[in-house]
């Protein structure tokens, strides 16, 4: 439990740092909420009124502490543009982004893991080189282009799937997965090659270990050796990178969200930044950072589950 407590302290420190520096960065952007809101419409009067309304004349640390105080008491503030509470917006958009994220990683892994395993069995063979080539091709295609090509093929030419829009998972799971299939493929395409190569390389290294020869000398089948003996100790790099990708993609699915008109977290953040609407951006960043830390915490827990040596070393700390 000491481990959990240590992680909790870390979490709080990370959240404070991230939100403070993001506040600082937003401060450095030219223009502010009031001028952006009043662009075209009112004059100085409007600007003064908005400045007053959102306390824009207070020094930055004061505004940060005010925001932080709200967050601690569960009030994330509201958008300056449409007065929508940030917590409400996040509740709407988070499930979309999370579903898209899980879906795309699932798709990437379901391709990368079997391909990596087969490729590792015959390193340097035809399948190994062929699959590496194909997957690297997908890695090399920019995802906005792949998205457009997918739209051109499926909704436009084949009249399959919808190019835009999103059905919530709770409403109709199957339809929901259908609505996110193309965006998920777009995101997965870039990850497959990395995942496959990581697993393949680690598997090849593990297969050189003495305990693999030992398993062979026991008469275990190659399949058993690969899946029962080699897979688990070979999955560490893969898990680490998946963890990092999760964190990165929580806020990094923007391009795909825009192309497929999905109202996710990425789009919310960028809309906020463009509108100089800082409170929603702060809320989104808080959630993204929290997600990042939690995913990495989960990765740590998975390490311990996979490798008893980590588990025991930790219980001694």
């Amino acid at each position: 439990m000491r481990f959990v407590r240590k992680k909790l302290v870390q979490l709080i420190v990370v959240m404070l740092c991230v939100t403070f520096f993001s506040f600082l960065l937003l401060e450095l952007l030219p223009g502010d909420t009031a001028t952006t809101l009043c662009a075209g419409a009112g004059g100085t009067e409007c600007i003064e009124q908005k400045t007053e309304e959102f306390h824009l004349n207070d020094p930055m640390p004061v505004r940060y502490v005010r925001w932080l105080g709200g967050v601690v008491t569960g009030d994330f503030g509201s958008s300056a543009r449409n007065a929508q509470p940030v917590s409400e917006a996040l509740q709407q958009r988070m499930p979309v982004t999370i579903e898209l994220l899980l879906y795309s990683q699932f798709l990437a892994l379901i391709i990368a893991v079997p391909v990596g395993i087969i490729a590792a069995q015959r390193a340097g063979g035809l399948f190994d080189r062929g699959s590496t080539g194909v997957l690297f091709l997908f890695l090399a295609i920019p995802n906005f282009m792949l998205a457009l090509v997918l739209i051109l093929i499926f909704p436009v030419k084949l009249k399959l799937l919808n190019a835009v829009g999103y059905t919530p998972f709770t409403e109709n799971p199957l339809k929901s997965l259908g609505s996110l299939l193309l965006p998920a493929i777009t995101l997965a395409a870039a990850e497959m090659a990395t995942y496959m190569r990581l697993l393949r390389t680690d598997l090849i290294a593990t297969m050189q270990e003495d305990y693999i020869t030992m398993a062979k000398a026991k008469g275990m089948s190659p399949r058993h050796i690969l899946l029962r003996h080699a897979f688990k100790p070979s999955s560490f790099s893969l898990i680490t990178v998946i963890g990092l990708n999760f964190g990165r993609l929580i806020g990094g699915t923007l391009l795909v969200e825009v192309i497929f008109s999905i109202n996710g977290l990425g789009k919310y953040t960028v809309d906020g930044i463009l509108g100089r609407d800082y409170i929603p951006v702060q809320g989104a960043i808080l959630v993204i950072a929290l997600g990042y830390v939690l995913v990495n915490f989960a990765v740590d827990m998975i390490y311990a589950a996979l490798d008893p040596r980590i588990r025991h070393a930790r219980s001694l700390v």
Partner: peptide, 24 residues
């Protein structure tokens, strides 16, 4: 050979630090 290995002939390896699977 896998019917021979383990059942008919088996081997003790040099280094027990590396010849046992650490995660099993």
């Amino acid at each position: 050979m896998s019917n021979v290995w383990g059942a008919e002939m088996s081997m003790v390896f040099q280094d027990p630090m590396t010849s046992l699977n650490p995660v099993m």
